[in-house]
């Protein structure tokens, strides 16, 4: 219950973006804080065993509505959540953008600084033609694919955080009281 990112996603290889320090997990903790001395593990632990994978398609059970409703019921909390979501998405986008800028921006500089590159040949075709005319395109598609996958993962993590079992804020407080 303490580590958020570990147990939430059991069978999945951790993507690189998740290895960075995470900000979002802080808000869900408060319900536990008022009772530091109590024997904690009793009520929540058995419930956690049943959940083996995060829910993607929410038809019932822990619905995302609870999360969204909570988000708006507690504006400060919602603000924190959304800011961290925006920060994660922006970090991902800027990362890919930096690679793009380094590759596309570096190419003319490389041609300017190393004149040998301008006339070298690959398979009978001049290197600049190969790079700008052919190689650039699969690289762009690859970068886009990487971004789409990871942006969707950031969003999935976010909805899991709101609606998932270890974060569903509406239930535990009632149990505790």
């Amino acid at each position: 219950m303490t580590g958020q990112s570990g147990p939430r996603r059991p069978g999945r290889p951790q993507p690189r973006s998740q290895q960075r320090p995470k900000q979002p997990p802080k808000p869900p903790k408060p319900p536990r804080l008022p009772h530091p001395a109590e024997p904690q593990p009793a009520p929540p632990a058995p419930r956690r065993v049943a959940v083996t994978a995060p829910r993607r398609h929410r038809a019932g059970g822990y619905s995302a509505r609870a999360g969204a409703a909570d988000l708006h019921a507690q504006p400060r909390l919602g603000q924190l959540y959304v800011r961290s979501l925006v920060r994660n998405q922006l970090r991902l986008s800027l990362g890919v953008l930096a690679v793009l800028a380094a590759v596309l921006g570096g190419l003319p500089a490389a041609f300017a600084l190393l004149p040998g590159l301008r006339t070298s040949e690959v398979a009978g075709i001049r290197l600049p033609w190969v790079l700008l005319g052919v190689v650039a395109y699969p690289l762009l598609v690859g970068a886009a694919y990487f971004h789409v996958r990871h942006a969707e993962r950031v969003e999935r993590d976010f909805t899991d955080l709101l609606g998932g079992p270890d974060a569903a804020p509406p239930a535990p407080p009632r149990d505790a009281r």
Binding site: A64, H72, Q79, F158
Partner: peptide, 22 residues
């Protein structure tokens, strides 16, 4: 600003709760 940022960045499955979001 918070309202607009929420709308732009929140995934639809979260934002489409039945509570009318402001």
């Amino acid at each position: 600003v918070d309202r607009v940022m929420l709308r732009m960045h929140l995934p639809e499955e979260v934002a489409s709760g039945d509570l009318p979001l402001p």
